[in-house]
Amino acid sequence: MGCAMTDIKIKIGNKEFKNPIWMASGTFGYGKEFEDFLDIEKIGAIITKTVTLTAREGNKPPRIVETPAGLLNSIGLENKGADKFKEEMYSYLKKINTKIIISVAGGTGKEYEECVEKLSEKNFPDAFEINLSCPNVTHEGTKYQLIAQDPILTEKIIKMVKKKTKSVVIAKLTPNVTDVSEIARAVENGGADAVAMVNTYMGIAVCAEEQKAVLGNVVGGLSGPAIKPMALKAVRDAYKKIKIPIIGIGGIMRGMDVVEFMLCGATAVQVGTANFVNPDGYDLILKEFKDYLKRKNIKKLSSLVGKI
């Protein structure tokens, strides 16, 4: 026969992942919510809903609305805070036989640092994803609304958290910038092991009938198939400027979308909004991806990465 399966394991930092298709923060709960629908240990990695140092209540409803081929959300990082998260979720998360990545965020560099320090244990988690798409509370009044729009602060925060943990550090970027590759370079300089992109694109949904914004927060973040072309471009722009691996995110629904991200420069990807549409959809995405590799006779994943 001689048609050995392509090795789809990948390495980021010092960690090996069983495959390059992961679940995006905020779209997969803590994994538990999906156990009725799929074998979550097949997933390459699970990124938890973002945790902050102290509890956050989240934004005023309505928090979500569908837009053409997309979803606009303004959840507002609702979570119970690092202590409660650790107390309630760690024993569960540690038992899952796949890589666990904890997403953290803060309003200041110090909050990121403390949050990572608090959540770091000897061999857990496998990685932190630093969600930098947060309002910058200390620099109020500067031109940068979000931390991930400020290359200097971004680099500093990555340096700070790197010192506090032995886990792999992935920086997650917002696409709401003039040039995302500049921010990607900043996190690379800061020592990040990889960069994940993109978070949602800021947008507004309006109800003309009632002459008001649909979301309680007025502004939300757009995700889903509607953003895929822009996300692919962001990944390709960054790929040209940095050496660390890129984890592509944005509108992935099927196996072919994974391939598209790899061709633009992604080493791995994350599935987000698709989890809401098909809570059992992971198996099909993975299968379609593997089928493609077989059909195109691709021996090494790296031969796909950044090909266009």
Partner: peptide, 17 residues
């Protein structure tokens, strides 16, 4: 009947105070 995306408690979209 709040707006919903996932229906299974994963997205935190259907919050009610």
């Amino acid at each position: 009947a709040e707006y919903m995306a996932c229906g299974i408690g994963a997205c935190l979209g259907c919050a009610i105070m």
